[in-house]
Amino acid sequence: MTIAPAWSRRSLLAAAAAVALAPRGAAAAAKAARIAALGGAVTEILYRIGAGPRIVAVDTTSLYPPEALREKPNVGYLRALSAEGLLACGPDLVIAADGAGPPAVLAQLREAGLRVETVAEPPSPEGVLDKIAVIGRLAGLETEADSLAAEVRARFAEVAARRARIERPARAIVVLSLQGGRTVVGGTGSTADGMLALAGITNAAAGVSGFKPMTDEAIVAAAPDAVVMMQNGPEPPRPETIFAPDTALGRTPAGAQRRLIAMDGLYLLGFGPRTPQAAIELMRAVYPGLPGE
């Protein structure tokens, strides 16, 4: 701002915007033709409402559907974006999950005449439905978003009906990682906590907040009936290693019954359109004899 070029910045930006919009004409200006989708659930919803072909860039967390990262340029991690990298993909609308950044980069993108919209991500059914509605409106696909929302709402109702039939809630912990003997679990306020609540399971790690390492003693004291883990590769984690006799997890009721549930990370914790299915899958694994199955 101090080292100003000879021409004013405003006229420069106006000119850039004019160039960006001119070839597509007035009608196209209202409906974004090229969308940058940043965030796992954002990308998933855009694909589900049929905006997939209009996506020109995704971020590293856009893991579903798998073709997203295979076919679209990856602009890096959602919170460490590069302004020029994003501009190079030529989007006219950026839809980003809440927390995208750094803020200076978002400011630069807006300065460059791009429309940058962020979407809130509360880990609840209402949060998912709101997200679908907001993204549908931004992409100009309200009808498609409405029908997706109706479908997801119905599935959430099914989840609630199943939850109502649970007689004695089971206890479970969601283990995010087991690196170097540290067991990182999902505590209160985490997406893992939201998912367990949705599936009618008591979070045995409610004593910690967010994703935190939990001590061996606390794990034994929490006495989970089941352990839920992420499956990030083709191989699921093996109960024999997770519940080895000398580990804390091995000394819990879950260990005694070898109850290990492995699910894909984004599917389990992404709070996107597949969340009700994930909740039902989790309930089936934790409550095998639930009436109505």
Partner: peptide, 9 residues
């Protein structure tokens, strides 16, 4: 990343 004229100034 996020270097702006403001930061330079």
């Amino acid at each position: 990343s996020g270097a702006t004229w403001g930061k330079v100034a």
